[in-house]
Design a protein around this nucleic acid. Structure first.
Length: 347
DNA sequence: AATCCGGGGTC
DNA sequence: GACCCAGGATT
């Protein structure tokens, strides 16, 4: 059995019609690849269509504000991708005169483009024989060849990249790369793969040794940190609201939120803390009433953190210095936790 | 080499 | 609740 030929045959018969599959334009390929990093096709697709419509070329993206880009990215997560996207768009537009570099090595230098994405753009856009290694490829190769080296160890990363080089079809790299990923997504799925209908089953080491459910091997380390958020939804006597931008490090960089009082353990919010916060936003005498919006804490789950969140509604009897109109709130990029609140709260 | 960075789908 | 998703940057 020829592994790569079987992948190509399977792909020709089973490939989905996806919006970025009818072009080799590096701008479109780049956009789709960044959006699909750690993201399912179904989740990323509407964002891809929105970006292509709002930013048809790399110049449009380069000329946009980061805030516009983050707003359109809202809900997709891993927001550094959007910021890096903007950085790279500006470099392509200015330093590269709008033309993407056509080599794996040059692509790798760009912000947000790592080994996988450089390989994907080089192969799909420029037909360069460089194998992609994503989560799908790890799964397909580890099962078919029966490799139990952890895929997220240094040894595993190097091993699978070398193996990918050995088995790729250089003459059909565009279809081979997309084919092995599609095969991993649809046929050789993480759980309950349909091995009975698999064209590779007769030579699959994992199937022969009954290891399909044990491969690939991954070193797991999930320590979830708990954080306690108290958001202050401050409304002044002119019905204006405060939104703040998250600067510095950590989650949701450059996204907006309500003023936040945080702790690493559960605690009761004190009036005096609210008072101190309010003093930052107004020169007026501080007089307010507050109530808790959600009696049960909203638990917002991220990969490494669980955010136990309370929203406090503050009626401030004064005028905020930098308050915004309620109708303007929807224009700001906000994390899903905030967007969900805005959707349900009647301002 | 380990850790951080989102949100959603699936079982 | 655990795992995964067309990973990359930072420490």
């Amino acid at each position: 059995m020829n592994f790569s030929k079987e992948i190509l045959v399977w792909y020709a018969q089973n490939k989905r019609d996806l919006p970025w599959r009818n072009t080799t334009n590096p701008y479109n390929i780049w956009l789709s690849e960044i959006m699909l990093q750690q993201t399912r096709v179904a989740q990323g697709t509407p964002y891809y269509l929105s970006f292509v419509e709002n930013f048809p070329t790399v110049h449009d993206l380069a000329n946009a504000n980061e805030e516009q880009i983050l707003k359109l990215w809202q809900g997709l997560g891993y927001y550094s991708r959007a910021r890096n996207l903007h950085t790279t768009a500006k470099i392509i537009a200015n330093q590269y005169k709008g033309k993407f570099p056509n080599s794996y090595k040059e692509l790798l230098k760009l912000k947000g483009i790592g080994d996988y994405t450089a390989s994907a753009i080089a192969s799909i856009s420029f037909n360069i024989p460089e194998p992609v290694v994503d989560g799908n490829v790890y799964r397909v190769l580890s099962r078919f060849f029966g490799i139990d080296i952890p895929i997220n160890s240094t040894e595993g990363i190097n091993y699978f990249k070398t193996l990918a080089h050995e088995v790729m079809d250089s003459a059909n790299i565009r279809d081979y790369n997309q084919g092995i990923m599609e095969f991993g997504a649809i046929q050789c799925s993480p759980r309950n793969p349909d091995c009975e209908k698999c064209p590779l089953s007769s030579a699959c080491v994992a199937l022969k040794n009954n290891q399909v459910n044990d491969l690939p091997v991954k070193i797991k380390k999930t320590t979830v940190k708990k954080r306690y958020f108290n958001y202050l939804v401050i409304k002044d006597r002119e019905d204006k609201i405060i939104l703040e931008q998250r600067l510095g490090k950590g989650i949701w960089q450059n996204m907006y939120q309500f003023p936040l009082i945080e702790s690493d353990k559960d605690f009761k919010l004190k009036d005096t803390e609210v008072q101190k916060k309010l003093e930052k936003f107004s020169n007026d005498a501080i007089s307010f009433e507050m109530y808790l919006y959600n009696s049960e804490k909203i638990i917002h789950k991220l990969s490494h953190q669980h955010l136990f969140t309370s929203f406090w509604i503050i009626d401030f009897n004064g005028k905020l210095n930098d308050g915004i109109e309620v109708s303007e709130i929807v224009k700001y990029p906000v994390p899903v936790l905030i967007a969900d609140f805005i959707k349900t709260f009647n301002f």
